[in-house]
Design a protein around this nucleic acid. Structure first.
Lengths: 159, 159
DNA sequence: CCGCTTTGGTTCGAATTTGAACCAGCTGAA
DNA sequence: TTCAGCTGGTTCAAATTCGAACCAAAGCGG
């Protein structure tokens, strides 16, 4: 048993390490930039972005957690922080007593507006402008598929 | 002032979000897998990998921190954990009293050997086998360049 | 040989993150 | 109607992470 696994060959390893290190470096860089220039963590920034892009500027906690790819408890924490800072408010859901909407405040919108330019610039410098249009397409294609598969992950296949 | 920034167009945004979500999802997935099957965090696993791949199975703290793309203090913490678990030992550097080598123990090597197959398998499922050989090449090319630029980042250009 | 700046690591405190446990409130089937 | 089981969020404790402060040693120029 435990047949020798298929190790990664050089080409595969190159792809893997490039992905891993780029992922770490970019994350680090942007976290830094946001903290310095806007006083926000990347998670917090993403919350604001998601809410601002949504009709009604509000989303349910679970939906938001899914979009951010974070844990429910992690989101609860961050929303509390943002609420404390006045950038977001909690509102209860009319159709489900248990439900909670996180809603972007005007101030939250302002903060986002001020933070966005610098952040977009940083994203360009770190990733977007470094790639050719073709490379961006390949990236979107490949990693898009990767994401899709990991999202629809029902480990138990109901045959 | 503050000219309207160049926002991301759809194509660029697609690349960015694909990168971001794939990065989060893959990280999450692998963290999970390692914790479950080997009782290691991904950082710890990477430490073992880097050491095992090095002549003498030892590396200086700073060098190791750079390779892992982590902070020095973060590495100090993790090495302490691994040392406590008996997978790594600290050894002082002969040529520099301040220096510290992290060295892989035999037990650490064993743990790595047991953990590797499952982890490689997970990496394949999450990323490598999802992409075509061509996509992997593009990924390695593009993100390799991204990494290179972020590494050699001396914000102050000494003109 | 002497100070000054840099380097290598660790320590410390603050901020996050995560999964497990928990509490309601929903939902569907009997 | 009723109860078992799922859902939506929060709470909690434990593990990490990071940057700033710190200490000691190394490297250097004079």
């Amino acid at each position: 048993m435990t047949a020798e696994p298929r190790w990664l060959d050089d080409q595969e390893k190159a792809a893997w390490t490039a992905f891993l290190t780029a992922s770490n470096l970019v994350t680090r860089k942007l976290e830094q930039q946001l903290k310095d220039e806007a006083g926000l963590s990347h998670t917090q920034y993403e919350v604001l972005v998601q809410l601002s892009a949504t009709e009604g500027r509000a989303l349910r906690m679970t939906e938001l957690a899914d979009r951010l790819v974070t844990s429910k408890s992690g989101l609860t924490y961050q929303i509390t922080q943002l609420e404390r800072a006045g950038l977001v408010t909690r509102r209860s859901c009319p159709s489900d007593v248990r439900g909670v909407f996180a809603e972007l405040t005007d101030e939250g919108m302002d903060v986002l507006r001020r933070a966005a330019p610098g952040h977009v610039q940083a994203v360009r410098e770190a990733l977007i402008d470094v790639l050719t249009a073709e490379q961006r397409d390949h990236l979107a294609q490949g990693l898009g598929e990767v994401s899709r598969r990991l999202r629809g992950t029902t480990p138990i296949d109901p045959a």
